[in-house]
Nucleic acid binder design. Structure first.
Length: 886
DNA sequence: TCTCTGCAAAGAGGA
């Protein structure tokens, strides 16, 4: 029997005499998830360790428990083959179990500090890729050369020599080949490389290097002359065996570790066992052990405590990370088995670190909840199936040069969040238990409805799921680590309120036709610590940013340009190029960078020296904040970081960029959309907003807007900018649709002749759509088209994606229809907004008034609001908006 | 049923 529920209470452990001698037991009372009834589970023997980890409120799953009838009530007890899982919804990565078994503190250090760029790591990555290539039947020489080439930037930053790296990788590859040949298995079908494995049952995920006849194979590029694999390596392979057992009919009873460096060890000098491949047997004891280790991690993460190292058996004197461990322990004043060195950062910084650490980890839990959506199979459970495209019909697959596969299918035409360029889980219909591969979306919803993805292995393409990645959360932690632990006290002073930011604006005028922009530039150039540029819609903040960057460059400074989204980074670059700056390196993935910026993109493959010097010698580097946290970018330092759309960035997200520089300039608008987070935590407020409130004198408001007619900007200015916003010129103030070529405003219906109009079609909200509003929006759009406004000059904004789809069906294709969130940053001559809500404004989407600000301020010459006037009037802010618009 | 973008991930070493 399986039982799962929330822990209500845990008894003290006790020792009892049984037929088999003395035994330990712990009793756990659970409220069952299914029945909501209370029941008791008795944990025996080693499973009592789980009892020690449990706290009321935590979840527990017990699989294959024995059932007892005790005084008429059903009780459960662990027996042969029972598996106990603490907090099963917390998805632990297999490599983390490996690190934890080695030393729990190592797990924590890896998490907060990331793994630094180092030659063994880069070589390891290359050899793993070659391993995959060989399993897929690729020629060794070609694979080695290609994979070394691809690591060009990393190798260059390390100053590594290509020839010796290639030679070394070749030796490792030969060890792999030797192993492949000596096996009796020759058919490729027996192998499966780099398989993504996700366990719902045990709360585990990972990528097995290879699976051979259903058993895990792990590649290690180190040497091991013992006969047995290293324990932590066995643990890793056993985790994969556990997951494979869940998905297949049986749990594999052996695993293989492949130590490829053994092949290069001089036989004359070593007496040990130099065969690279070492098999080991996987018994029930080891399977239960790895699960208990996984449980320890899940329990520790549940209360977010910090491991000390005493939890494990590791000997600090043998540990390569001993120095790092002591330094981190010292700086954060954490208890540590290795001890502490150095002085602790001030208490306020430790509190700050802790506060944001918890916020990021809370966010991580929300990412984990998205895994649960992967295993919802039935249509009813797929209520929010916009995270997946299901019911695809495979239409073909072919092998590409370099061993990857192109997979094709036709879709059902359903809408989802999946977009071209996304990393997704491509599967045969079951992303968890079936055949699934990480894949890249190459094409989506062409005219023929065909979907094209590329993956390492062929899969019958029947379903695509968004792959919940922890990359962002991981990088927020490393940014926090870098800022708090490695920056100087002086750098941190104003961030922690110990000193006012110093600004000595430069004297000379830079922008002579806009006083606020000019002052912003002069402040930014004269900032000792940081300066803040507050740019409401249409105030030329991107131009101001580009001018700031150009001025810094003229003074010989090295500048980092960053923003949360690729789009914002590319926009900033575009403005900089217009300023005549072209000595630029755009750091980012091919799919992320806009087509017209590809020529500036750093090619990370090729000659190491060339790759590295392109990055190191660039006076301007542009990257998203997520990329700023990458290993390569963390090796770089800048005089100044200039961050655009800073109001959209979490505090640690901003730190990822600014921690790479001596000083920084944040450009943004905290009255527009805040950072996107899943959980409501300290991450919801941007660093920009915090600093602008703490140090208004370090900020400059750009108060002249070049976008909206005066009639349009009136309400947003009053409501969101204390009335400080005004049109830059008379022409801006008085613009109207009849200014557009071939537009005759007398052809517009009377109610649309004003620059701002309100239409109440009297519809009813249905789910997240309102068909009557969609029709009214379409009418308004048609009216403007009839009056001569061209399709590309009209935009439609709705709060929900469902309504966006509803409207999109009805209007010509060249009319842009999108959610508020995705419209931020752009503008149109004519904007029509659909509010959807009728009856009540009780939806979180209406709570944040900044969203309305964004919607209204996209319009230049005409703005039409379509909504239910009575409903909107039920909220003061919206009531004022209706009054203004009517 | 709220909105959303980033990211390949996992990769090493030795008493």
């Amino acid at each position: 029997m399986n039982v799962r529920g929330v822990v209500v209470g845990v008894s003290d452990g006790k020792t009892v005499s049984t037929d088999y001698g003395e035994s330990e037991l712990v009793e756990v009372s659970l409220r069952e998830a299914e029945s909501a009834e209370e029941t008791t589970v008795t944990l025996w023997g080693k499973w009592t360790e789980a009892g020690a980890l449990l706290e009321p409120g935590m979840e527990l799953a017990v699989y294959d428990a024995d059932v007892d009838e005790y005084r008429g009530e059903t009780r459960y007890t662990t027996g042969d083959g029972t598996m106990v899982v603490v907090e099963p919804d917390f998805i632990v990565d297999v490599t983390n179990v490996r690190a934890w078994v080695d030393c729990p503190r190592m797990y924590y250090l890896n998490k907060i500090g990331g793994i630094e760029l180092a030659e063994p790591v880069v070589k390891g990555t290359i050899v793993h890729e070659v391993f995959g290539d060989l399993l897929r039947g690729r020629d060794v020489e070609a694979a080695v050369e290609d994979r070394v080439r691809e690591a060009g930037l990393d190798l260059g930053l390390l100053g590594a020599d290509v020839e010796s790296m290639t030679e070394s990788v070749r030796q490792h590859a030969q060890a792999i080949e030797g192993w492949l040949q000596q096996g009796t298995l020759t058919e490729r079908d027996e192998y499966r490389s780099e398989q993504t494995l996700i366990s719902r049952r045990y709360g585990l995920k990972g990528r097995a290097d290879a699976v051979r006849r259903g058993a895990p194979v792990e590649l290690k590029t180190g040497k091991n002359t013992k006969r047995d694999p290293r324990f932590k390596d066995k643990v890793q392979a056993t985790c994969y065996a556990l997951i494979l057992g869940e998905h297949g009919e049986t749990t594999p009873d052996t695993g293989t570790l492949l130590y490829t460096k053994n092949a290069a060890v001089d036989r004359a000098e070593t007496s040990g066992d130099l065969s690279p491949a070492k098999d080991f047997s996987i018994g029930s004891g080891l399977l239960a052990f790895v699960l208990r280790a996984r449980n320890e991690i899940a329990a520790m993460e549940s209360d977010m405590s910090v491991p000390t190292g005493y939890e494990g058996e590791a000997k600090c004197e043998y540990c390569f990370e001993q120095d790092t461990c002591m330094a981190v322990s010292g700086r954060l004043d954490q208890e540590s088995k290795a001890g502490q060195v150095g002085t602790a950062v001030p208490e306020s910084e430790r509190t700050y670190f802790d506060r944001f650490y918890r916020a990021v980890e809370t966010e991580r839990r929300e990412v984990h909840r998205e895994y649960a959506k992967l295993w919802r199979q039935s249509p009813e459970e797929r209520a929010d199936a916009d995270r997946a495209l299901v019911g695809l019909e495979p239409t073909g697959q072919r092998e590409l040069d370099g061993g990857r596969w192109e997979l094709r299918a036709t879709g059902t035409g359903a809408v989802s969040k999946i977009r071209t360029g996304d990393l997704v889980l491509a599967s045969d219909g079951d992303p968890v238990g079936g055949n699934a591969e990480l894949a890249r979306v190459e094409r989506l919803g062409g005219a023929d409805g065909e979907i094209v993805v590329t993956a390492d292995e062929p899969v019958e393409l029947r379903r695509l799921d968004i792959y919940p990645s922890e990359l962002t959360t991981d990088r927020l932690l490393t940014a926090l680590h870098d800022a708090v632990l490695t920056q100087s006290p002086e750098w941190k002073d104003p961030l922690f309120g110990r000193a006012e930011p110093e600004i000595d604006p430069i004297e000379e005028t830079v922008i002579d036709n806009n006083a606020a922009q000019d002052e912003a530039v002069r402040m930014a150039l004269g900032a000792e610590d940081f300066a803040l540029v507050h740019g409401p819609p249409g105030t030329g903040k991107t131009y101001t940013l580009a001018t700031i960057v150009r001025e810094f460059l003229d003074r010989g400074e090295r500048v980092l340009i960053s923003a949360f989204t690729n789009r914002a980074v590319d926009n900033a670059l575009e403005a900089l190029i217009e300023e005549g700056v072209t000595d630029i390196v755009r750091f980012g993935s091919e799919s992320g960078v806009r087509a017209d910026m590809q020529e500036y993109r750093l090619d990370r493959s090729g000659d190491p020296q060339r790759c590295a010097s392109q990055l190191e010698e660039a006076s301007v580097v542009a990257a998203t904040t997520a990329s700023c946290g990458s290993r390569a970018m963390r090796t770089q330092s800048f005089d100044v970081a200039v961050v655009d759309e800073a109001g959209q960035l979490t505090e640690p997200g901003t730190l990822a960029a600014v921690a790479l520089a001596d000083r920084f300039v944040l450009v943004g608008d905290h009255q527009q959309l805040p950072p996107v987070t899943r959980a409501d935590t300290d991450l919801s407020e941007s660093l920009f907003e915090r600093l602008i409130e703490a140090y208004p004198e370090a900020s400059k408001l750009l108060d002249r807007q070049y976008r909206m007619a005066q009639r349009i900007q009136a309400y947003p200015s009053r409501e969101f900018y204390d009335g400080a916003l005004r049109p830059a010129t008379g022409a801006v103030a008085s613009q109207q649709v009849s200014d557009l070529p071939d537009v005759e405003s007398d052809r517009l219906p009377a109610h649309l002749r004003d620059r701002v109009a309100f239409v109440d079609p009297g519809g009813t909200q249905k789910g997240h759509t309102n068909p009557a509003e969609a029709a009214a929006v379409t009418d308004a759009v048609e009216s403007y088209l009839d009056a001569g406004v061209s399709e590309g000059e009209i935009g439609v904004i709705a709060p929900y994606r469902a309504q966006v789809a509803e409207i999109d069906r009805r209007v010509p294709e060249a009319v842009t229809v999108d959610t508020v969130d995705r419209f931020q940053g752009s503008s149109k001559e004519v904007i029509v907004v659909s509010f959807v809500a009728t009856g009540s404004l009780e939806s979180p989407i209406f709570e944040d008034y900044r969203r309305v600000n964004v919607a209204l301020t996209r319009a230049k010459k005409a703005l039409v609001l379509v909504g239910d006037a009575d409903t909107l009037a039920s909220d003061d802010t919206y009531a004022r908006m209706v009054e203004w618009a009517r």
